[in-house]
Simulated assay, not measured.
Amino acid sequence: MSQSLLFAFVLFATVMFITPGPNNVMLLSSGLTYGFRRTLPHIAGITLGMGFMIAAVGLGLGTIFITYPVLQTVLKYAGAAYLIYLAIVIAMSGTATTGQDNLRGPMTFWGAAMFQWVNVKGWVMVIGTITAYAAIASFPWNIVIQTAISLVVGTVSTVAWALFGSALRPLLTSPSAVRAFNIVMAVLLLASLYPVFMDA
C-alpha cells in the first residue's frame, strides 16, 4: 500500500467532504430548520449513499456510463433540476417549532442517498477517487480502502455541518432571520450549479 498516496487521498476526501457544496448547504439549513436529531437520516443518507456510489463505480458500474455517455448528461441535468427545486423549498422554509411541523420535513435517508447520483460535486469526488487514487492498493482492496475512508470522513463532515446549523437555532430566533438565512443557503445551493452550466 502506498502510504503517501493514502495520505493524499485522505486529504482529498476531507477537502471534498468539508468544503461547501449541495450536501453541506442542505445539512446546514436542515440543522437550523429541523434540529440535529431530525437531520440524522439526511446525514446517514449522504454518508452511506456516497460510500455506496464510490464502491459501485469503482467495482464496474462506471463502465456503463462510459458505454452510454448520454446517461451522464441525463443525470447532470436531472440533478440540476432537483437542486433548483430544493433551493426553492429551502428558501421558503422556516423554523419547525415544537408542535408545528414544517410541511415538507427534513430530507429522508433514501432521498439523501439517491441525491448523490445526481450531485455534481459527488461525481467529481467519485471520479477523482477512482482514477487519481486507484494505486493506493491492488484491486479490489483499493476500492474497499477508498470506500471506508470516505465513510469515516463523510460522517465527520456531515455531522459537523448539521451541528453547525443546529447551533445557529438559538441565535436565529425570529422567523424573518431564519427565512433570510435559508434564502442565503438557497442562493449558495444555486451557485453550486455553476460548474454544471459551464460544462454544458
Rank of each mutant, 00 (worst) to 15 (best):
M1I: 08
L6W: 14
L6D: 08
A8D: 03
F12C: 10
A13D: 05
T14G: 01
I18H: 05
I18R: 07
I18L: 13
P20Q: 11
P22I: 15
P22Q: 13
P22F: 12
P22C: 06
L28S: 07
S30R: 09
G31E: 02
G31W: 03
Y34D: 05
Y34L: 08
G35K: 05
R37L: 03
R37Y: 00
T39C: 03
L40I: 15
P41T: 08
P41F: 05
P41R: 06
P41H: 06
H42Q: 14
M50Y: 15
I54C: 01
A56H: 14
A56K: 12
V57P: 01
V57S: 09
L59G: 05
L61H: 07
G62E: 13
G62V: 15
T63D: 14
F65I: 14
I66Q: 12
I66T: 12
Y68G: 00
Y68D: 03
Y68T: 12
Y68A: 13
P69S: 04
P69N: 08
P69A: 06
V70T: 13
V70C: 07
L71T: 10
Q72M: 14
T73F: 07
L75I: 05
K76D: 06
Y77E: 09
A78G: 12
G79L: 00
G79T: 04
I84N: 00
I84C: 12
L86T: 06
S93E: 03
T95R: 10
A96V: 01
A96N: 02
A96L: 01
A96I: 02
G99D: 10
D101T: 14
D101V: 10
D101W: 10
G105P: 08
P106V: 05
P106F: 05
F109A: 02
G111A: 03
A112M: 04
V118N: 01
N119H: 08
N119Q: 09
N119W: 04
G122Y: 02
V124N: 03
G128L: 15
T129W: 08
I130S: 01
I130Q: 03
T131I: 10
A135D: 11
A135G: 08
A135N: 07
A137F: 08
F139W: 07
W141C: 00
V144I: 03
V144G: 02
I145S: 09
I145P: 06
T147K: 04
I149Y: 07
I149V: 15
I149S: 05
I149W: 06
S150K: 11
S150M: 14
V152F: 06
V152R: 10
V152S: 09
G154Y: 06
G154D: 14
T155L: 15
T155V: 08
V156M: 11
T158P: 00
T158N: 13
T158Q: 13
W161Y: 12
A162E: 12
F164S: 10
F164C: 08
S166F: 00
P170Y: 11
P170R: 12
L171Q: 04
L171S: 03
L172T: 12
T173E: 15
T173I: 13
S174L: 12
P175L: 10
S176Y: 09
V178D: 00
V178S: 01
R179L: 11
A180T: 15
F181G: 01
F181R: 02
F181M: 09
N182E: 08
M185T: 11
A186S: 06
A186M: 04
L189R: 05
L189Y: 10
L190G: 01
A191S: 11
A191M: 12
L193D: 04
L193K: 05
Y194T: 15
Y194I: 11
V196W: 01
F197I: 13
A200H: 11
